[in-house]
Write a protein that binds this DNA or RNA. Structure first.
Length: 478
RNA sequence: CGGGGUGUGGCGAAGUUUGGUAUCGCGCUUGGUUCGGGACCAAGAGGCCCCGGGUUCGAAUCCCGGCACUCCGACCA
């Protein structure tokens, strides 16, 4: 089985998960380091993954009525200052432009860490009537945050993402938008990336700077740590008031619109790697894989092999499958290892013996399982296997999430679980910041979210023992 | 931002203690043989030894100062 045949350059994930991650990212050709800390080169294979994520999301955004726009890269300091919580949240990590050529600027400009302030400023100029609402905008761009600790995909100083920003006539409508977009992220994760999620609301402590409410999807990585997959924020009319965005409403009064924003970044690719990867490298779900099938000719110099391989590629392409062949003169074994490292979900081997029998061999990346496929059923069988792989990866990740999510009644139980098995822990919680801080201090976990799917795992707060009917999920997060 | 580790052809390392001609393996190029789990033979190409200062007749090696990577904390998406 694949598990035994480790690629020697990849560190064993059970020995050192962080090093494993770095090795995979480099060896699979996803990332290269640049000369500046925290700025990474996203290589073609990783960019292709991002493009697939983009196309899924972009299509959904547009179906739901959103339009793409482009906002400036720079934000004048005065603009950033307008919403108090927002500045305080981001000020420690913004980078500033102070000079244009050799001249010092009269007002310094920050490189956007996120674009709320830019959208708000723009809207304050263009919004007039309730007939202009809703405004449903999205931007694909990169943003910059001066992080202290950086890691490929998980924490870049500059990272690519999309940020959706919307304005609505009513609070209800804005709330609904926030939920709707969270569901779009959840669909991306579950249906395409095969990553099961926990949907929920962030606590006051963990919510976005300036938001009334932040909703999140939380995923579990192979090392049982949590990763936030995407967030969706409801702003109420706080920003609108700070930026003086007003419109004439249906009864001809001046009103403040209600606002949302939501974002998902290339960090999700980090999640994808850490959810499905193994000691042989990446392991991509078919629906998001840049290459779904790699065709490998065996004994390619033998009469008819290359032609046959090419024929298979053409047939699969015609069937709508993203397929490539490798006809280089590397040995077959080398190619097997190479494409396993790159996580190509399905490999098809075609050699003289297969041709004789009118078949090919299909090998599934996630299990190493080999199945002979009759050439007459190639397209159907290939699609079927890709489907099986997609579902299996999801199921395996789901099992990991389920079996590593536990319930606890007291803080010391949480501590014992985290120190023992790790993973996520559900407890009741009174809602106070003090208890949240104490949990962090004593058990080393932060609140991941207040899941929408609540469960009564006790009657009192696990920390202060006051009566409580809210369940929170705790964990160690990336 | 604190603590540890690392930086030598594309990759992985030896050499640094004790200063004296730049080494090895993989990869790469060319030719040939191979081909069902990282093949083999032969010939080649490729290096501001992370950067900047200093000491010295001479620095990959010693001293000072940076930078980057990495792990562990703190902080943050």
């Amino acid at each position: 089985m694949a598990k035994d045949k480790r690629v020697e350059q990849i560190t064993d994930m059970d020995e050192d998960f962080a090093q494993w991650f770095t090795d995979v990212v480099k060896k699979a050709g996803l990332i290269d380091y640049s000369g500046t800390k925290g700025f990474f080169i996203v290589r073609p294979y990783a960019y292709a993954l991002w493009e697939n994520i983009q196309s899924v999301l972009d299509a959904r955004f547009k179906e739901l009525g959103h339009e793409n726009v482009s906002m400036p890269l720079l934000i004048p300091e005065s603009l950033l200052q307008k919403e108090k919580d927002h500045v305080e949240g981001f000020a420690p990590e913004v980078a500033w432009v102070t000079h244009g050529g050799s001249e010092e600027l009269s007002e310094r400009l920050c490189i956007r860490p996120t674009s709320e302030t830019l959208f708000c400023d723009h809207w304050s100029n263009v919004l007039e009537s309730w007939r202009d609402l809703p405004m449903l905008y999205n931007q694909w761009c990169s943003v910059l945050r001066w992080e202290k600790t950086t890691r490929p995909f998980l924490r870049h100083r500059e990272f690519m993402w999309q940020e959706g920003h919307t304005l609505h006539e009513t609070a209800q409508e804005a709330e609904a938008e926030t939920q709707q977009m969270l569901n779009v992220y959840a669909e991306l994760c579950e249906d395409y990336l095969a990553m099961p999620v926990i949907k929920g609301r962030k606590t006051e402590k963990e919510k976005f700077a300036g938001a009334v409410a932040t909703y999140t999807i939380e995923c579990m990585m192979h090392d049982k740590k949590a990763l936030q997959g995407g967030t969706s924020h409801y702003f109420g009319d706080g920003f609108a008031r700070a930026f003086d965005i007003q419109f004439s409403d249906r009864s001809n009064n001046l009103s403040y619109p209600h606002q949302t924003s939501w974002g998902l970044s290339t960090r999700t690719i980090g999640g994808l790697i850490m959810t499905h990867g193994d000691n042989n490298g990446l392991n991509l779900p078919p629906r998001i894989a840049p290459t779904q099938i790699i065709v490998i000719p065996i004994a390619a110099h033998k009469e008819g092999v290359l032609d046959k391989a090419e024929e298979l590629v053409m047939r699969l392409k015609k069937a709508g499958i993203r397929v490539k062949s490798d006809t280089s003169d590397q040995s077959p074994g080398w190619k097997f290892a190479e494409y396993e490292m790159k996580g190509v979900p399905l490999r098809i081997e075609i050699g003289p013996k297969d041709i004789e029998k009118g078949q090919c061999m299909a090998v599934m990346r996630f299990s190493g399982e080999k199945v002979p496929v009759d050439l007459s059923q190639l397209e159907d069988k290939a699609s079927e296997l890709l489907d099986v792989i997609q579902k299996s990866l999801y199921q395996r990740a789901k099992d990991n999430l389920t079996s590593n999510t536990r319930s606890a009644k007291t803080l010391s139980e949480v501590k014992a679980i985290i120190e023992g098995q790790g993973g996520l822990v559900n407890t009741m919680w009174c809602g106070s910041l003090e208890c949240e801080m104490k949990m962090k201090e004593d058990a080393g976990v932060t609140s991941r979210c207040i899941p929408f799917e609540q469960e009564r795992v006790g009657d009192v707060c696990a920390i202060c023992e006051k009566p409580s009917d809210t369940m929170v999920v705790w964990g160690v997060a990336y």
